[in-house]
C-alpha cells in the first residue's frame, strides 16, 4: 500500500513540474509580439497560391528527383563496393567517404557555382538544377551504404540457389537479391526520403529564379520582403505536414518488418 502511495506522489510531482514549466513559458512569452511576428493572417493569405503551386511543388519535385537520382547512384555504388574487382571497390569507397564527409551545403554550393563554370553545361532548372546535382551526389553516397547493407542482409543461400539453377550473376542480382534487399531497406530508404525533403532547403544556397524556388527559399524571400516571420511558420507547417506522416509510415514498416522475422 505504501509503495503505491509513494509512486503516486512521485508521478504527481513530475506532472506538477511539467505544468509549472509550461505555465512559465506561456507567461514569459510575449504573445502579442509573437503573434505580430508569426501570425499575420493577411501576409499568410498573400502567400497563396504560390507557396503551394511553386514552393511546395518544387520541394516535392526536387526531393523526388534527388531520391531517384540518389537511388540509382546508390545502387551502382553499392554494387561497385561489393565487386570482386579491386579498383571498383576503392573508387566506390573513396566516393562514399568523400561525400559523406563533406557538409552537404558545401557540395551543393560547389555544384551550383563551380560546376556550371568549369564544365560549361546547362542543366534543367538552371543553378538550382546544378545544386540539385550536388544533392543527388550526397544522397547517393548515403543510400549506397544502406543498399549495400540490404544486399548483404540477404542470406547467402539465396544467391547459391539461383546460381545452382544456372542463373548468371547479374540475373541473380536483379531477380533474386535486389528484390529481397529492397524489402529490407524500405524503412531506411523512406527515412532517407524524409531527410531529403528537409535537405532540399539547402538549395537556397543556389540562387533561384521565381519559378525554381523551393519552400525554404520562397518563404525566406517572403520573410525579407515583409520583415515578418509568418511565411517561415507556414513553411514549417508544410514541412511537418509531409514529414510527420512519412515518419509514422517508417515506424509502421519497421514494426511490420520486426514481426515478419
Amino acid at each position: 500500500m505504501r509503495r503505491t502511495t509513494r509512486r503516486r506522489l512521485r508521478r504527481g510531482i513530475l506532472y506538477a513540474i511539467f505544468v509549472a514549466f509550461v505555465a512559465l513559458v506561456a507567461l514569459a512569452a510575449d504573445w502579442g509580439r509573437l503573434r505580430q511576428q508569426f501570425l499575420q493572417i493577411d501576409i499568410a493569405r498573400e502567400q497563396f497560391p504560390e507557396i503551394i503551386t511553386i514552393a511546395a511543388k518544387n520541394t516535392l519535385l526536387f526531393t523526388v528527383v534527388a531520391f531517384i537520382g540518389g537511388l540509382i547512384l546508390g545502387i551502382v555504388l553499392a554494387l561497385m563496393k561489393l565487386s570482386t574487382i579491386g579498383p571498383y571497390r576503392w573508387l566506390a569507397t573513396g566516393y562514399i567517404e568523400l561525400f559523406r564527409g563533406l557538409p552537404a551545403l558545401l557540395t551543393i554550393f560547389a555544384m551550383a557555382y563551380v560546376l556550371p563554370i568549369a564544365l560549361e553545361i546547362r542543366v534543367p532548372f538552371g543553378q538550382v538544377g546544378a545544386g540539385l546535382v550536388g544533392l543527388i551526389l550526397v544522397a547517393g553516397a548515403y543510400m549506397a551504404e544502406t543498399i549495400r547493407a540490404g544486399i548483404q542482409g540477404v542470406p547467402k543461400g539465396q544467391a547459391e540457389a539461383a546460381r545452382s539453377l544456372g542463373m548468371s550473376p547479374s540475373w541473380t542480382m536483379v531477380s533474386v537479391i535486389l528484390p529481397q534487399a529492397f524489402r529490407i531497406i524500405v524503412p531506411p530508404l523512406t527515412n532517407e526520403f524524409v531527410l531529403l525533403i528537409k535537405d532540399t532547403s539547402l538549395l537556397f544556397i543556389a540562387g533561384s529564379t521565381i519559378q525554381t524556388k523551393e519552400l525554404t527559399t520562397f518563404t525566406r524571400d517572403a520573410q525579407s520582403v515583409y520583415f515578418n516571420g509568418t511565411p517561415l511558420l507556414m513553411a514549417a507547417m508544410l514541412y511537418l505536414f509531409i514529414t510527420i506522416p512519412l515518419t509514422r509510415l517508417v515506424a509502421v514498416l519497421e514494426r511490420r518488418m520486426a514481426r515478419s522475422r
Binding site: E160, A161, S164, G166, M167, Q180
Partner: peptide, 20 residues
C-alpha cells in the same frame, strides 16, 4: 559454368526457396 549447372540440380538443407 552456368550451362553446366542447368544440368545439375541442387537441393539444400535450408531449402533456399525465393521468399519474394
Amino acid at each position: 559454368v552456368d550451362k553446366v549447372r542447368t544440368r545439375i540440380g541442387m537441393v539444400f538443407q535450408q531449402f533456399n526457396l525465393f521468399p519474394h
